[in-house]
Design a protein around this nucleic acid. Structure first.
Lengths: 121, 121
DNA sequence: CTCCATCAATTACGCATGTAAACATCAATT
DNA sequence: AATTGATGTTTACATGCGTAATTGATGGAG
């Protein structure tokens, strides 16, 4: 079962710093998403069921820690999109953004650097 | 309302060639996805409701044509992923694929070419 | 004309999701 | 010990999705 988008918002908090209590997570994600307590609790429980986080007791409450790494999650999502829309190839994806003028100067500079580094191998 | 993944599979058929009848669409997408008639009809109707396709009567049946372009769909999906996972910047996305060794020789060659063309502007 | 075959439209159903209320537990306070 | 406040657990409910069966319309065969 995949981690949904709302669940991912909770994961993001945990990826920034963990372990965290439900209260801390709510404080960080609640306002931005307009969520309240029950919602965050539910998301945490679904993440537990999906083995994307684990919880350890800390006195009266629990502290949550990610089990699924951000790297892994990002990989899955990215690969999914790439396969579905660009036949699994990266260059067409970048070409797409280029056509949409979504490449900033900084992007271009970084891409150049990246390619140069690939050369030096 | 967003076009779902199953719906997108139907759109792909129409993007390849349109207008098409439900029967033709089924023939092309059914076997690959393991769908049968009713499923494809439902998806077509949902796409109609979402204004992603239009239908025009052709004798006893309908011919379907995309209203949503593939370009636009790809843009929405790509931008969504980019914003959610890479803070809206392209270079980190490519760096990610590079680290995952998902860049083929061909990708690298094409990226080089792309950057060169950007130079010539 | 009536009946059948062919399409499309409607309805259905289980599961995931987003969102949250209700309930349970338990430590701390009165 | 009883109450309260903080937390976590369970249940709920509307919506969307994947999948399909059922119903409805309509043009062609007899």
């Amino acid at each position: 079962m995949a981690v949904s988008e709302a669940e991912a918002a909770v994961m993001e908090v945990l990826w920034r710093a963990a372990p965290r209590s439900a209260e801390e997570i709510l404080a960080e994600v609640g306002p931005a998403q307009g969520w309240q307590e029950g919602t965050v609790k539910s998301l945490l429980n679904r993440l537990l069921k999906k083995k994307a986080v684990k919880a350890e007791k800390d006195g009266r409450r629990y502290l949550y820690t990610p089990l699924l790494s951000r790297e892994k999650y990002v990989s899955q999502e990215s690969k999914g999109l790439l396969d579905r829309l660009f036949d699994g190839r990266v260059a067409p994806l970048v070409a797409h953004f280029s056509e949409q003028r979504k490449l900033t100067k900084k992007d271009v500079a970084e891409l150049r650097k990246l390619l140069k580094e690939l050369d030096d191998e």
